[in-house]
Simulated assay, not measured.
Amino acid sequence: MAGDGKYGILHVPDFGDGMSSYLRVGATPDDDNTWRDETDGNRITTTRGDKIEVIGGTYTMKVLGRRAFKATTEVEEGRIKEGGITFQGRSDIEFVKGARGQRKIRETTVKGEVHSTYHGDSFEYHYGPKLVSRTGHEDTPTPIEDYPSVMTENPTMIARTWAKSISSYTGSAKLPVPSIKEETWAETMESKTHVKTMTDETTVKGPSKETMKAGSITSTTTVEQTLSDTTKAGTIRNKTTADKIISETRADTEDEKYGDADSYTQGNSKTVVDGIETTINLGVVNEVVLGAMIEATLGGEATLSIGATVDATLGLEASISVTATLEASVGPRLSMGPAREKVSLDRSKAAPVRTNISAVHLIV
């Protein structure tokens, strides 16, 4: 001990230049530190019982670790700031002003590569005016091999989940989310779902709009048993614009319509029935042809009319039957017109027979 007792110095042998280890208690005229403990070599501290350190000012610890990276811990006014190789920067805890003017703690952490493993239950609760999550950035160059001087790169994300059950809820009936927006930009997107049973329900109280734009669309649905599709709406409007529509159905078809039906075709229309076609009209049939009408029957034709039949043709009507034709009419039949020509072949004559009917004939 030396001086008036304000400080004490414990000297140890000097093992080399700049390697003086000592323990000093008390301040010196050129140093305001009242306690200095400096060791130029290794140091081991053993505490066999409890240890309590009370620090009234700022606490700072720096660990060099024989490497270029420096780890530091600084505690000031209850705030902790850390920096090191695992943080690639610092971890700051500081007081900030909240949304309602209250004083709260904010932690800012920058880390390097981190591997975390949890055993047991894990709970996360978030409260506050904002929760922001971001991975990568659109202005970050990638791949990193082309930009070796850039310290950041956009990652490759892989997520795998195995669980007994998964439940996800967004909002509730009591407190729904005011607005949800989802936006995805990708060059290639693939989605697969394998389940035993599946229920999908969507309820929209207001208008619903769905738009898809693609170069080509291929949709395949395979159902082993029954495919049931039910649509209920006040008015259904379908509009399709295409250069050509090809529709193919391989199944027995039943089509039921309740209500008035109106069909308009601009262009040629052709219907080919390879089999027996049966048409039953319970009511009045109105057929109006504005233009030429050509009917060709290759085979037997039987027409049965029970009731009045009215045919109105404005233009040329040509009917060709290369077979026997049977017409049965139970009821009056009215034919009106200035002239009607009938062409047939006579057995005894090779010239056709022409008959002009210029009046009104009533055939019963």
Rank of each mutant, 00 (worst) to 15 (best):
T117E: 09
S149M: 06
G112A: 13
F69T: 03
D121K: 11
E94P: 02
G78Y: 10
Q88F: 03
E77A: 07
T142C: 03
Y147V: 09
T117H: 08
A71M: 06
F123S: 15
Q102I: 02
G98L: 06
E145P: 01
T86F: 09
V132Y: 11
D92I: 11
I93K: 15
G112P: 15
S122N: 12
T109P: 01
F87G: 05
K130V: 12
G120W: 10
T108R: 08
G128V: 11
G83I: 00
T86M: 06
H115W: 06
H115R: 06
F87Q: 04
S91I: 02
T72R: 11
H119Y: 09
K81H: 07
G65S: 03
T108L: 03
I80F: 06
R66S: 14
T140P: 00
K111E: 00
G89C: 05
P148M: 08
T142H: 12
T109R: 09
E76L: 09
K130G: 04
E138P: 09
R90T: 14
F123V: 15
G84F: 12
A71H: 10
G112T: 06
G98S: 14
P129N: 13
R90C: 09
E77R: 14
I144A: 13
D121F: 01
T117R: 07
T117F: 02
Q88V: 12
Y127N: 08
Y127R: 08
T73E: 12
D121N: 15
A68E: 14
R90Y: 13
R79V: 06
E77K: 14
Y125D: 10
E77V: 01
G83C: 02
G84I: 04
K111P: 00
A68Q: 13
G112K: 03
I85H: 06
P143R: 01
V132W: 07
G83N: 02
